[in-house]
């Protein structure tokens, strides 16, 4: 369960060292778009030593370069260690996700890494939108993220703040991710000065069923966390329902409303999120 994932360029030690104060559920250390081609070597080396130096209380996600290019393979060879929780794969398709899974398995075995490093495929091509169902079912995939900027480019669509042009991939991502029990992570909102726009965009994504959102600036995190967390009222209601459910078997009435199994399940999910994010 991830509400917020913050992108940080992996060649900026000042930002990397401050990652934990941003209160994102996960940090995406980016080796791809935010690192110039002639700085890839420096970023990889810096990230490797950074990961070996600190301990983290957030999820460590690394966005690597595409693995059909030497940079992606060098990224993996350099940075795979027990500190890495997940790899974000750009321009993912099923074959690349399978290949990445095989590579990770090899690194884990060779380096004695006991955990299973997860994969977060980036859905940023029209073809990948259609392949989401196949991608979601592959081993190690525990979330998918929409990359709307590249997707809009691939579709030759104009990106707008209302996001009408990404209604379909967002909705498809939400349904497929839910069906496979994985996270549906929304694309970042790129105007870092427009807080109202960010909130409206995040609410639209949540309304479609997405479970979290990526951020490109630390100031975006608190809004995203708030929007993708259960509200205080929802938590109070869920606690009341679960307490009442213990007194009843089957459907019952609470404050004039019928409570049945799907509502109880929903309340349990709200409380699970509340416990995870220390909101209870």
């Amino acid at each position: 369960m991830r509400r917020s994932l913050l992108f940080i360029p992996a060649n900026r030690p000042g930002m990397m060292q401050n990652a934990e104060v941003f209160e994102a559920d996960g940090i995406i250390f980016d080796l791809e778009d935010s690192v110039a081609l002639n700085e890839k070597d420096a970023a990889r080396t810096l990230l490797k030593h950074f990961l070996a130096t600190f301990k983290f209380d957030f999820e460590v996600v690394i966005r690597i370069n595409p693995i059909d290019h030497v940079n992606g393979l060098l990224d993996l060879e350099t940075i795979i260690s027990p500190a890495v929780d997940a790899i974000m794969l750009p321009k993912a398709d099923p074959a690349m996700v399978r290949k990445l899974g095989e590579l990770l398995e090899g690194f884990e075995r060779a380096r004695g890494i006991r955990k299973t490093i997860k994969i977060i495929p980036l859905i940023e091509l029209a073809k990948s939108v259609l392949q989401m169902e196949e991608i979601a079912g592959l081993p190690r995939v525990d979330g998918m993220m929409l990359g709307a900027e590249d997707l809009s480019s691939d579709m030759e669509m104009e990106r707008t703040k209302t996001g009408n042009e990404i209604f379909y991939p967002r909705a498809r991502l939400a349904y497929i991710a839910r069906a496979f029990g994985i996270d549906a992570i929304d694309t970042p909102f790129t105007d870092v000065l427009d807080e109202d726009g960010l909130c409206a965009d995040a609410r639209r994504a949540k309304g479609l069923g997405l479970t979290g959102k990526a951020a490109i600036h630390p100031n975006q995190i608190r809004y995203i966390n708030e929007i993708f967390s259960p509200s205080k009222a929802q938590i109070e209601w869920a606690l009341k329902v679960i307490a009442a459910a213990k007194e009843h078997s089957g459907a019952f009435s609470l404050d004039g409303k019928m409570i049945d199994t799907p509502i109880i399940a929903r309340c349990e999910k709200i409380l699970e999120k509340g416990r995870k994010w220390k909101l209870l």
């Binding site: 030690p13 070597d41 420096a42 080396t45 810096l46 030593h49 950074f50 130096t53």
Partner: peptide, 17 residues
């Protein structure tokens, strides 16, 4: 104001280059 890991990383990259 670099920490040790940054100095080491930048040095290693400079040597490789």
């Amino acid at each position: 104001g670099a920490l040790d890991y940054t100095i080491r990383s930048r040095l290693l990259t400079a040597i490789e280059r």
